[in-house]
Simulated scan of single mutants.
Amino acid sequence: MVIGKKYILTKNFKDEPQEDDLTLVEFEVPPVTDGEILVEAEYLSVDPYMRPYSDTMSPDITMIGTQVAKILESKNPNWPVGKKIFANIGWTTHSVFNPELLDESYIISPYILPDFDDLPASLALGMLGMPGNTAYFGFEEICKPKAGETVVVSGAAGAVGSHVGQIAKILGLKVIGIVGSEAKCKWIVDELGFDHAINYKTEDVYVALSNVAPEGVDCYFDNVGGEISSSVIHQMNEFGRISVCGSISTYNTGSKWNSNNLLKATVIQKAMIFKQLKMEGFLVYRWIDRWNEGIEKNLTWIREGKLIYKETVTEGFENMFKAFTGMLKGSNIGKAIVRV
């Protein structure tokens, strides 16, 4: 008999997540029947999207999320024992399921990991997975970047932002990152090759950006929303493009989401109209039919030394909540993951 552990969403988060919003429980793993596999989690992902998406979920479900897991037992010939897989099965140490019969709520179907050679399997949760494809498709398909242009990336030290900035450098753009600490400023400039970094906690973003980008901004990859984004949008050039990936500055507003105060924002319409800007939000699953293309492209860039990956690893399944809330507060550099 195998005993697993999982986190149950006891109640929907209200404003900033609290530890008692989740309950860690043990459960008896059911036997494997025909067509099914038993997997054990090795790495679990914590990502910003989990915060707003969980608001739409009914309590008493397993907390949502993706993981890299190893197949321990299989009664499905297409899924042999010992293989590592990617699966969107939540915050759980063990799962039994038929990987070929999951319902439509599993937007990305489980898949056996491709050969990463000597690279860590955890990259399937980062540069070689959903965040990597978010950066690849969300930047290239929406911003349509051109060599010689200037791009600003907010949340630039996170899993997606740090990746977007590096792709921009590969494509020959001037890259400015907005982050929340001096350590992150140093990392994105000294190690990732960004041209400039702005610390929004100690600098006036509008003034700092006007100093490092006097020629204006052509592309903006937005991970945070709020006043930071308004400061960037008002300094964009004619026909600039804005790719809206996230709004992490508002995710912990919870019950205040529909309040009058939150719905009020700095006016951006004047800049949008007179500079003829294009602003487009996206979900990465728009490109699900090209999923492997993104993985292969990012894998090639890593092998060529053009992409540098960094992971902030939290040890222990019991520390999932700590890793999750730390990520929401920006404590991670690069991809935040939990090693079971």
Rank of each mutant, 00 (worst) to 15 (best):
4 G>W: 02
9 L>E: 00
12 N>M: 00
12 N>K: 08
14 K>S: 11
15 D>V: 07
16 E>H: 04
20 D>P: 10
23 T>I: 05
27 F>D: 04
30 P>A: 05
33 T>C: 14
33 T>S: 15
34 D>L: 14
34 D>F: 10
37 I>Q: 09
38 L>M: 14
40 E>A: 14
46 V>P: 11
56 T>H: 09
58 S>C: 10
59 P>K: 08
60 D>Q: 15
62 T>N: 07
69 A>F: 04
70 K>F: 01
79 W>Y: 15
83 K>T: 10
83 K>C: 10
84 K>V: 06
89 I>H: 03
90 G>S: 05
95 S>V: 05
98 N>W: 00
102 L>N: 07
104 E>V: 14
116 F>D: 07
118 D>C: 13
126 G>A: 15
141 E>C: 07
145 P>A: 08
146 K>R: 11
147 A>G: 13
152 V>H: 11
153 V>I: 13
154 S>I: 00
161 G>A: 07
161 G>E: 00
166 Q>P: 02
170 I>V: 15
172 G>E: 00
175 V>R: 11
177 G>Y: 08
178 I>F: 02
181 S>P: 09
182 E>A: 15
185 C>D: 05
188 I>Q: 06
192 L>P: 00
198 I>G: 05
200 Y>S: 14
204 D>A: 11
206 Y>F: 10
209 L>R: 07
214 P>V: 12
218 D>E: 05
219 C>F: 01
221 F>A: 10
231 S>E: 09
233 I>A: 02
235 Q>T: 06
241 R>A: 06
243 S>F: 03
246 G>E: 04
246 G>V: 01
249 S>I: 00
249 S>E: 00
250 T>D: 09
254 G>Y: 02
257 W>N: 13
258 N>L: 05
267 V>Q: 11
269 Q>I: 06
271 A>E: 03
273 I>T: 12
274 F>K: 13
277 L>M: 07
278 K>N: 08
282 F>D: 08
285 Y>R: 08
286 R>V: 01
289 D>M: 07
289 D>A: 14
292 N>S: 14
299 L>T: 06
302 I>M: 14
303 R>C: 12
304 E>I: 09
305 G>V: 00
306 K>P: 01
307 L>Q: 02
310 K>P: 01
316 G>H: 11
317 F>W: 07
318 E>V: 09
319 N>H: 13
321 F>E: 07
324 F>M: 10
325 T>N: 09
326 G>I: 05
327 M>H: 07
334 G>R: 05
335 K>P: 12
337 I>L: 14
340 V>Q: 12
